[in-house]
């Protein structure tokens, strides 16, 4: 319990730095602190599958984020402080935290889960599926539709990224079109 609190406080410090620092490369790397802290938490929360996945995904997402921060201006835009956005953001965050406190009253205490459905997975999973890893049994046998949906989502996301990024098949814009769209030069 104390270990979890220490790692969570480290993650809060990392996220405060990621939100408030001016240099974008530093912000991205501070977000990496939060990701690796999450993976250490997964390891101590007895979830080794997710810990492995989170470490590697974090490395790959850091590479992608550093890729978009380099060859661009990585300084924050701080000409004038936007008071309206700050006030609206703080109001939303306050409402959100208040609703969370309201919801936590009805939850069970930390460490005592309600396992009406998954008790069956633990007690009969080996006989019904033959897999020793219960997480693999759940994602590929009991709830394989969820995995199919995940595959479709990631397929669609890469399709979208390719459509946005590629410009080979597109016709060259004429000057008239540029005026119509309003691109400044």
């Amino acid at each position: 319990m104390a270990l979890f609190i220490v790692i969570l406080i480290l993650m809060i410090a990392g996220s405060v730095v990621a939100v408030e620092i001016k240099n974008m490369l530093s912000a991205v790397i501070a977000a990496g602190i939060v990701g690796f802290g999450v993976s250490v938490m997964f390891l101590f929360l007895k979830a080794p599958d997710i810990a492995i996945t989170q470490v590697i995904v974090e490395v790959l997402s850091l590479i992608i984020l550093i890729r978009i921060t380099t060859n661009a201006d990585n300084e924050a835009i701080e000409k004038k402080i936007d008071n309206f956005a700050n006030i609206v953001g703080l109001i939303f965050v306050g409402l959100f935290v208040a609703f969370c406190f309201w919801a936590f009253v009805d939850m069970t205490a930390f460490g005592t889960p309600i396992m009406r459905v998954s008790q069956h997975y633990l007690s009969a999973g080996l006989e019904e599926t033959g897999a020793a890893n219960m997480v693999a049994a759940v994602i590929l046998d009991y709830r394989a539709y969820d995995t199919l949906g995940e595959a479709v989502v990631i397929f669609t996301s890469i399709l979208g990224a390719f459509v946005i990024l590629r410009s080979r098949g597109k016709k060259k814009l004429t000057e008239k079109d540029m005026e119509k769209v309003g691109i400044p030069e």
Binding site: L60, A131, N133
Partner: peptide, 20 residues
């Protein structure tokens, strides 16, 4: 993946990161 921690998702990301 069905005996030890891991599986298709973790292993797939490891394969991707090798080529990256």
């Amino acid at each position: 993946g069905h005996l030890t921690p891991g599986g298709g998702f973790a292993g797939g990301v490891i394969l991707a990161i090798a080529y990256t």
